[in-house]
Amino acid sequence: MNYAWNWSVLFQAPYLGWLGQGIAMTMMVSIAAWIIALTLGTLIGILHSGASGALRLVTGCYINVFRNVPLLLQMFLWFFVVPELLPKAAGTWLKRDLPHPEVVTAIVALGLFTASRVAVQVAAGIAAVPRGQSMAAYASGLSTLQRYKLVLLPQAFRIVVPPMTSEFLTIFKNSSIALSIGVYELTAQTQQIQSFTYQGFEAFTAATVTYMTIALIVTALMTVIERRIAIAGPLARG
């Protein structure tokens, strides 16, 4: 194997700057999308677990559609197709006047996609709360809202922390797909460094190490959260 190593390329201008920008973009897109995913996904998950048949159907449709179309294609649909289908003024605004349309689109697409996965976890978490809890809440005269707020959700949220950790990790990885619509996140930047310098080893190693570091930090953070919110005493779950 013939390869001219040159690790210093990672610390030279402009490549160091590209890496930094890439990391910042990956973090920004992922965290912004995570906020959308968590809010919307929780809401959809709660509605999906409810008694209303119509709501269950609608939320089920959302979950199935967003889970069964590749994220890459969803990005394309939001970026290329949606502006064409909207009324002309809105479409033009999306294409012309919206600042950084590719970044905004990536955040929205990634957020809505991940929301469907979060919703599945939340609904499963609510279903995992023992039935007696819900019945006892009914029997004590709590309203539906109170039943969710005071009894079901506090327990369900604790159950879903571990699967949420893995969803949160996945969103950082999935943010790399945003490169297909022109977002210069970490993977795109390292690919660019590779094509400029031919130092692919160094560039891709930098990206790999960064993604691994993000994974370690997120896992550590979520473990702390999991410990903090654990219910002590006989209610504690394995």
Binding site: L169, F172, K173, N174, S175, S176, I177, L179, T187, T190, Q191, Q194, G200, F204, A207, T208, Y211, M212, A215
Partner: peptide, 9 residues
Amino acid sequence: AVPLILVIF
């Protein structure tokens, strides 16, 4: 820990 796109690259 890493995205599939990066693995492909």
